[in-house]
Design a protein around this nucleic acid. Sequence first.
RNA 1: GGUCGGAUGGCCGAGUGGCUAGGCACAGCUCUGCAAAAGCUGCUACAGCGGUUCGAAUCCGCUUUCGACCUCCA
Length: 497
Amino acid sequence: MSTFHLYNSYTRQKEQFESITPGYAGLYVCGPTVSGESHLGHARPYITFDVVQRYLKHLGYRVRYVRNITDAGHFEEEGREAIDKVGEKAKLEKLEPMEMVHKYTSLFHYGMRLFNCEEPAIEPTATGHIIEQITMIQTIIEKGYAYEVNGSVYFDVPKYAANYPYGKLSGRILEDQLETTRELDGQDEKRNKADFALWKSAPPEHIQRWNSPWGEGFPGWHIECSAMSSKYLGETFDIHGGGMDLQFPHHESEIAQSTIAHGHPPVRYWMHNNMITINGKKMGKSYNNVIKLSELFSGNHPILEQAYHPMVVRFYILQTHYRSTLDFGNEALQGSERAFRRLWEAYELLQKLPSGDHAQAADATLDKQVNDWISEFADFMNDDLNTAKVLANMFELAPVINGIKGGQIASNALSADTMNLLKSSFKTYLVDVLGMQPLQAEQSGKLESVLSLLIEIRKDAKKRKDFATSDQIRNQLAAAGISLKDEKDGTVSFSIE
RNA sequence: GGUCGGAUGGCCGAGUGGCUAGGCACAGCUCUGCAAAAGCUGCUACAGCGGUUCGAAUCCGCUUUCGACCUCCA
């Protein structure tokens, strides 16, 4: 596709992306609830939407990327006992809510940096926008779509559904919702079962509480995203992203609230990434199969056979289309690690190859094939962010690069223009758009000089046919995690794990 | 129970009405003092049963089966 198309969850079809303000793109992504440590499941949306905002930038948009931090409690609807999740956990851990929130926010940021996710332009917190949320709730009350009971405020869903397409995003019908009745306590407050809280009166034991026109309480879960997204991106903005599990009720409620408060729907394009599963089951606290990011990176978890580098995880995630479920497995991750190493080596090799000065390609067929593969990078990204296909083409190109280096392909097979295009495109898509980084950090130079000494000694030994010595050097370095490779041209390269 | 989405080769996965995606693993070969890497070659699958079609893994129906959402959740 020649222009950027993305799958809009709201219309259930691929649509051409057109921003509201030409040249600018607004992106809002539901951020983490920082009442616990980030886990593997968090990696998927934030890596996915990092690529979205990187690609929008690549296309020339000035992007305002907003991702919130939920640091106020979420709580049950449906009349269950209103428990502030943040407050509750805080008691268990004997922490101040803000102390706990700060701790997990920092850990989240740490994980995002390791994944090489660029920082959002704005990262608003729910607790920092209580006023905005109260104001929005007041507007909804004034418009007649919310009511107060005992210090709590609820959104009138049936009234909304009578006038607006409630349930369109998540594909459900209000009547069905009403039928899935379960008898729960404390439901009397709400007029209708499907109503959701905009503001909840805080019981005495509740730690987080704010003054409001309805007494002391705390905001409902859905209102924060509506208040903050409209504040920073406008009443209607381009893209709203998040995990599929947020479609209902969270995003459906956002649409309802914003539509009433502002008079029009809030979002042009809804994007939802699919879930990560472990042995076919969604990862979640209730399944007891959560792998925290720190465990993933250290390998310290019963499911894990080894530690996995953040870049391997990122690569693994991008090898799958974001709307497919992604099943986690050691074998798959280990495969990704090898594959990524190979791809990255080819990339680095490519940048060192001379482009030559021959205007004509000696192998016109290969030259055209390479150009086709390159031009497909954009086509695939434009087709709803098909990162899997982009990577597949890179793996088509890797043997070409390695072949030129290894001599199986003539150095003048590709024209100088093609070589230059290959170099720049590979960098653009692998590094800038997909956001990949090398597995190993830059070396300090001291280690390199030591290694070059050992390599020289080994070269001498090989000249003397003293293979015992040369093999000893290579084997002991290998044991230390440094592998040597004798290249065809007589040089020796090394890589450090 | 309601709604929705899947079932692809040893594993992970893309995708399409007809033209072997890709990766990992595996086997052979080339290169090499030996390794490693790299290159070449091989491995050709789409849950089952019907139907539509010149042709279906791709469309339709049924069956089996897995999952997601309906409740905090990325």
